[in-house]
Design a protein around this nucleic acid. Structure first.
Lengths: 221, 221, 221, 221
DNA sequence: AATGAATGAGTGTTCATTCAT
DNA sequence: CATGAATGAACACTCATTCAT
């Protein structure tokens, strides 16, 4: 931690050594590619076996790089984990903002946020489970670092909207936590259904949170 | 060595010496105490660092016993984990059944189940965080074995009730998962509030699931 | 090792405490029985799994005694091993002496010694393999302590006879070692044949050592 | 992890870097040296204390390497053992074949095989007892993996020859076992004599097996 | 930078032995 | 003496991390 930290995922593509050549040279490309390859591999591995069980060798094995190279890009196993979280949050933020831009009241924000999340989920899903899909049946999508980050993102924005639009008499903490939890759980289920129906899932969550059981739409409908 | 193994400390509770004296002898007392001490320590350790990260040595360190003693009582790290799950389920089941006995429709069952769960949670909480309470801030109560078992219990009963009382047009999987998730999350929050208000938390969950945001009671009210 | 060593197998049946009662009391009987039970169990266990793999618990499990009792009778796992050797030697010595008493020249002594050994082997065999016989197929009778002791016994007597009756020009060390080795190996084989033919085996060894291949009798003949 | 495992140090002997330079690079040299150092150390350790009693740490202690390094080269304690056996057999086979090529009848084959074995023994001896020679007095060369393999080799060839050249009336099993045992024992003794006389030892065994005691040559003669 | 062998603390587990009861 | 729970040093093996090449 005394060192300059070359690793916040915001890749500093142009480093002194690379600048010698006019365009980002092969070196720089390789560097970015390696960094990203490690990240991808780590995503898969963490999602397949969880952080604890995953070994650094599991990760680099999928990249074709060497153990040593891993430590050139990330200082520790934990750092990749964090990088993954950053990465997820960075990818999710624009989606969230795009969808929730014109939402003003709680229901519209809720729909925007949940929709954004489910879309993100559907898009990313294959990144996390590239290939082996049905081989092992991971009853739950593991608590990947990116998911954690995304939740945090939503939780914040969500709470803010709630704050602005709801009367003070509801327990905002409880409500935010509940909504997030429902979204997480339903999102999880959604990922495992075929066909994967993002709209239906969104509708379910919005209805449940807004009007409770009685407001619920039917399934497959 | 897969055989019953008469050598382990475990459970030949009824021996001559025990029968002769009315109360369990000092030996038996110590045995029970140790077994329970290990269980308690394991509960704490698992809840603080999760099963993978927890080491057998972490567990026994808190008991003052030796590594060897651990293996006198449990055959493996996994066995304590399972014992914990059994234990939780065994303690929870009667509570759940007592509360949900006369519930016939979905709302009353929901209230019964959530109430049972929150009561169980409040009661058990100190078992899981004995002492160190605020020392580390475990953002989430970890997925302890007992919690897992309890969830399973509720999920089953819950789904059954749902099945009987709701029209076919709601997505039961989504609903059950959502209700459980909300209960889990709100329960978690409840545990960290002072004063700990079981009734309010129960009321919140029941209201949200039944009638959505608009049906929600105010906080601290 | 500073202690008086209560354990050389030559059982000191009468100990101070036992002498209080006139005849060897129940205590003494039990003591002798326990000591012998441990020895028997150890014999089996060592012969089944070898010294290293055998555990003290394996041994006492077969006696119904407690671990503690084991250490009342023998100071260590190694000590039982040694006791077993002593025991075997002590049982074998009279047999050997009886058979070789009137032997004067080398051939007659050879026959006597080999015969004694094979008889001993046949007799003891069931002690070592009580029950499970064919269950596992121990390609070789394990180098039990008693066997080692018996060999030593024969080797000595053998060398002595050799010394007296053979011209100085044969290599006595080589010869003794060879004869012993042959006896050991053939004895081993003999134990696994059905019917077990002690005479044939003896004849084979005596013939081979005396006259070489050309002097050999046919098998099953 | 049962898969070929590209991560272990082992044997991707032909790599670009190795092919470019004529001689193996320093890296490769070190690797080969370490692998061989471990093998040598294991040979010693197994021969001194036997497989069961030997610990991986005993082995690596003699190499100056770390525990981890051991597992870079061999996947388990058992694997070194097997490697040792393979190694011994591989070294012995050509010697045996060279010597027994033109042997047709039993006596000539016997002399060839025994001679081959004793020569092998004499050559290998220093490998097994490097240094400590007289320090501990290993009454018997332990049943090292290589010895076991070599025996098997001889036993097979031996039995084959026997089969072809001897009348059916001798007990081939007894005879093969006996000859092997004698060779083993005499070889053992030979190793401990100074000067070490391979020819005399061979002569002794051949004479004894062929013609028995009366055919024996004198010692040191 | 890349490589991959080396490192050694740490893991779950076993077992000879001790000792309070 | 008998008992069996407690002890802790070992054991085989793993893995994050370092570092010479």
């Amino acid at each position: 931690m005394p060192a300059p930290d070359p690793d916040s995922v915001s890749d500093r593509y142009a480093k002194l050594s690379d600048v010698v050549e006019l365009a980002p040279g092969k070196r720089a490309l390789t560097k970015a590619a390696n960094r990203s390859a490690i990240l991808d591999a780590a995503r898969e591995v963490f999602s397949e076996m969880g952080f604890e069980a995953a070994t650094v060798r599991d990760i680099i094995r999928r990249t074709g790089l060497s153990v040593g190279a891993f430590y050139n890009y990330y200082r520790s196993k934990e750092e990749v984990f964090d990088a993954l979280a950053d990465d997820g949050a960075r990818r999710f933020r624009p989606i969230l903002q795009a969808q929730s831009a014109q939402a003003t009241d709680f229901p519209s924000y809720l729909r925007a946020a949940v929709g954004a999340y489910f879309n993100f989920l559907a898009t990313e899903h294959e990144l996390w489970t590239r290939g082996l899909e049905a081989e092992t049946s991971p009853i739950h999508v593991r608590n990947t670092p990116e998911l954690a980050a995304v939740f945090e993102e939503v939780r914040r924005a969500f709470a803010a909207t709630l704050d602005r639009t709801m009367a003070a008499e509801v327990d905002l903490d409880f409500l935010a936590a509940s909504a997030i939890a429902v979204a997480r759980e339903v999102g999880d289920l959604m990922l495992r259904r075929r066909p994967m129906d993002v709209t239906a899932a969104t509708e379910f969550v919005v209805s449940l949170i807004s009007g409770g059981v009685t407001a619920l739409p039917g399934p497959e409908h």
